[in-house]
Design a binder for these strands. Structure first.
Lengths: 140, 140
DNA sequence: AATAGTTGTAACCTTTATTGTTACAACCAT
DNA sequence: ATGGTTGTAACAATAAAGGTTACAACTATT
């Protein structure tokens, strides 16, 4: 199991917007060229980022722009915009309540699963789009 | 996207073995009854746990047993036994090297992704089977 | 030696998610 | 009015998850 590439594509999209929106019109075709993915997929992901309030999209004329400062966009925001599941873990549905373990496993594991997911999300929360952009510029 | 239920099923399996191996023969049918999942799926997951050195399985006679102390089995061990992908994240394959962002995104993001995954794995590493068993016994 | 309960595995099936594609109506600056 | 866009529908292909039946191979017990 892996997370879908929507997460890295969405991050790529936002980096391109932050980098190029001043100098050119960032359309789904432009992004498609940088990311090497079908423009329809780009438009769908852009739609998720727009619903989440991270970007705006110009109807008719075309082009996307950041709807909030790059300092205020984190990897967690991006992740949640494109991965809709609340819990990362799929718990088997019907453990047998007549078994001592089956009866208690949820109350034991649910908290652990939350802790694990939080550890991941906290790490994501600390990485902003502006920091990614800075690092990208350094490496150019 | 969610992790498959193999992880929680595998944890359930190990808890049942740790709990019951002294008093009864823990077969795939027994486990199937507690977990409420087809015995063939149990046997496949048991095979992964066996390959990873966590359990042994008695041929012919039947029954699984812990192959190492419960104190030395962590959620990370279990997770890695049943989820084989190295990276949690699927990176889009062919960013355009002629685009400044496309050219640098891998060197910027690869480290971040590792950090995020490590945060999750460190949390998993701290939770042992023996601790889960203790907590389950408390709640019974 | 035959039996009976297991395990390991092959061979299917269904369902769902991902990714890709074409097509086209709706939109709007020029 | 035009032309470049966006949003979305409608497909299709592939892969993974989860389930099921079937059966050969194994081994303690009788």
């Amino acid at each position: 199991m892996q997370f879908s590439s929507r997460f890295t594509i969405a991050t790529h999209i936002l980096l391109c917007i932050a980098m190029f929106e001043k100098e050119t019109k960032v359309t789904s075709n432009f992004l498609s060229g940088s990311i090497n993915v079908n423009p329809v997929i780009i438009r769908n992901i852009l739609g998720s980022l727009s619903s989440a309030g991270m970007v705006g999209i110009k109807q008719g004329i075309g082009g996307a722009y950041l709807a909030k400062p790059a300092e205020e966009i984190t990897l967690l925001d991006i992740f949640k915009a494109v991965e809709k599941e609340e819990s990362l873990f799929h718990f088997h549905e019907n453990p047998n309540p007549e078994c001592p373990i089956g009866r208690t496993i949820h109350s034991v594991m649910d908290g652990k699963i939350e802790t694990i997911q939080s550890a991941m999300e906290n790490e994501m929360k600390d990485i902003t789009l502006s920091r990614l952009l800075e690092e990208a510029k350094e490496k150019m």
